[in-house]
Amino acid sequence: MTTAAQRSSAIASPARRSGGGLLGAIYIVWWRDVLRYWRDRARVGASLAQPLLYLVIFGTGLASSLGGGFGASAGAAGISYIQFIYPGVISMSVLFTAIFGAMSIVWDREFGFMRELLVAPIDRSAIAIGKTLGGATQAMIQGLILLVLAPFVGVYLDPLVLLELVVLVFVLAFGLSALGVALASGMRSMQGFQMVMNFLMMPMFFLSGALFPLVGLPGWMTVLTRLDPASYGIDPIRRVLLGSSGIPVDRFALTLFDRTLAIPVEATIVIAFGLVMLAIAVRSFQRRD
């Protein structure tokens, strides 16, 4: 009993300090997510099948049914449909990974490891932030892996472009991961998950410009596509990825009130959106039932 008490007091005081502050706690939550992801490499491989399928089926199927249509309107300097959707498919991978990853929180906080974090003496905001960053890191990697396909669709990367892409893909991943965590943090049952899938994730994907250019659309649809935060994340990825290989992509660039947006402006919009979502997630994690 005395030895126990002695040992207890020896570490009791540092224990009270709770995990090296907010940053330390965020780091721990993030690190665990990334480590888990790394352990699950087999799944990482399998999860590439879906984007690949999209790329091949849409890229080939739609391109041939559209005929020369897509290229023709593009004028002499060509952009093939498969090239057009390549960045879209990368973004899809980011979107799905981010949202699915976040949805696992719903189960995790009732029955999984997250309860270990919820009873720990760390600030709840660290959980929301760490989860968002962890999900964003995974989603970013899932997107960037697809860059190995670049040569097959006639896209060439140099280190500077790659760096730009890392940043832009992370920005998109962050925005979507924050959205996912914000949604998941308010959800207490799996039922909501189906809703998110049907009424949020799929529309977001289809309206984001991943599969077709967001120009010359009917008015109502133009409005919807501009309300879709993913639009502002995907467009810069496409412009940088394809533009650097000399593929004429600028006429598909996203416009807002008939003005083309600069890439930093688009990135800022996505980051701002992500921060708002993160704030919602933090509040929702701090609330106790």
Partner: peptide, 21 residues
């Protein structure tokens, strides 16, 4: 509420870090 993708030692280590040991 263990993390089953981590080892036994990692689970304990993680806990120790979270509690600032």
């Amino acid at each position: 509420s263990l993390d089953d993708q981590l080892t036994a030692r990692e689970n304990l280590e993680l806990h120790g870090r979270i509690y600032g040991v």
